[in-house]
């Protein structure tokens, strides 16, 4: 199964998180030692969760606004942080 990086997703894409790993990040200088990973996890990212891309920012499609599972709140993140999240795409309009 092909995995797609959250940073490369289009609007309305839906996927299941397969891996959260900061070694996948574009810019690895961004804080090291599991820090980004821990922060993503604290904001609700977790392997197995369903992610839906809701909105993309105006400039360079950044930041990315997503919903995790059926949570009532939305998480916005920049591409670099999003690139630590790998998804298995399940829907694509």
């Amino acid at each position: 199964m092909d995995l797609i990086n959250l940073a490369n997703c289009n609007r309305y894409d839906i996927g299941i998180i397969k891996e959260i790993n900061e070694l996948n990040m574009y810019d690895k200088s961004c804080l090291s030692g599991g820090e980004v990973e821990a922060r993503l996890l604290e904001m609700g990212f977790i392997e197995g969760a369903r992610v839906e891309v809701l909105h993309l920012g105006a400039f360079g499609e950044e930041p990315i606004a997503i919903r995790i599972n059926n949570s009532n709140s939305i998480i916005a993140l920049r591409k670099n942080e999003a690139s630590a999240v790998l998804l298995e795409k399940i829907k694509n309009d």
């Binding site: 998480i75 916005a76 993140l77």
Partner: peptide, 12 residues
């Protein structure tokens, strides 16, 4: 120096 992660919540 290092870039900082930017993650925030958009409440309903």
């Amino acid at each position: 120096g290092e870039r900082q992660p930017s993650i925030m919540e958009l409440p309903s």
